[in-house]
């Protein structure tokens, strides 16, 4: 059985296979260049260089501690206070990993949904509306409309439309996670980052969530960290395989799962380790 330390020791001779999506004619919305993440002295991510295609779902897979969540959280600078992130994160031609960037504005364009559903202790309506109100949307009609469309897009509207004033804390896990998605898309982002969004959900809620993500692909670029390989295979267009803080393989999902070029990827997707 391989541990991440074994892999790090022979990293010099490690094979890698990272496809440049520009080469296959994709429209790139976000890309990272020479991204390194340090927690104190400890380097958790070595050169994450990836390109993300517009209106596609990209899955980040890999064993625990491989750096995939660290990488994802760096993309909207959620690691700012916890870690040091060096390198470039190009979002529509602008490097957003520099101090001059308005990080709050940037996070509105690059939204995030977390592993554990985290609805606020407010009503369902206010969970979605209050961030908009803080940004100056005060027109009741407009707010109502955004709340409804966001909930529809997250496939939650039919279940909650009669109880919008109920506390969001009373929702079930699956519903709460949908609410978090609705909340994230209400501020009209370009990109949605999801950090193992289904790991706390039961199988039925998980499959509903996957259907929702496939619908959302029409409007948003989705980057999802998952430890569930069937999930990656079912919903993603591209898959990146992380191991020991590096991207070892990046290709179309079907390539990664049917014809991986790197030995460790093949071991991982066939369930030999991780």
């Amino acid at each position: 059985m391989l541990t991440s330390n074994d892999v790090r020791d022979d990293e010099a001779m490690q094979e890698r296979h990272v496809t440049q999506l520009t080469d296959v004619g994709e429209d790139i919305i976000l890309s990272t260049h020479d991204l390194h993440v340090f927690y104190g002295q400890h380097e958790a991510l070595f050169e994450g260089d990836l390109q993300f295609a517009n209106h596609k779902i990209t899955a980040l897979i890999g064993p625990s501690g491989s750096g995939k969540s660290t990488f994802l959280r760096s993309l909207n600078r959620m690691n700012d206070r916890i870690a040091t992130v060096t390198g470039q994160i190009m979002y529509r031609g602008v490097d957003v990993n520099q101090p001059a960037i308005d990080v709050y504005e940037m996070r509105r364009r690059v939204g995030m949904v977390f592993q554990r559903p985290n609805p606020f202790a407010k009503s369902i309506y206010d969970n979605i509306a209050f961030a908009l109100q803080l940004r100056g949307v005060t027109d009741r009609h407009q707010l109502d409309e955004i709340v409804e469309t966001s909930l529809r897009q997250a496939a939650l509207w039919d279940q909650v439309k009669d109880e919008l004033n109920k506390s969001a804390l009373a929702l079930s896990g699956g519903q709460a996670q949908r609410l978090c998605i609705a909340r994230a898309i209400a501020v009209k982002p370009d990109i949605l980052l999801l950090d193992e969004p289904a790991s706390a959900l039961d199988p039925v809620s998980t499959s509903q969530l996957e259907d929702t993500l496939l619908d959302l692909k029409q409007k948003y670029t989705i980057i999802i960290v998952t430890h569930n390989m069937q999930q990656a295979a079912r919903i993603s267009d591209y898959t990146a395989f992380f191991n020991a803080g590096r991207v070892l393989e990046y290709d179309t999902t079907s390539q990664i799962f049917t014809n991986p070029q790197v030995k460790i990827t093949s071991d991982y997707v066939s369930g030999n380790f991780g």
């Binding site: 709050y104 939204g111 977390f114 985290n118 609805p119 961030a131 978090c180 909340r183 994230a184």
Partner: peptide, 14 residues
């Protein structure tokens, strides 16, 4: 919970 703070920050709140 810390997840509440993350939730707020991820929405672009200061």
């Amino acid at each position: 919970s810390e997840t509440q703070r993350e939730g707020g920050l991820a929405l672009g709140l200061s």
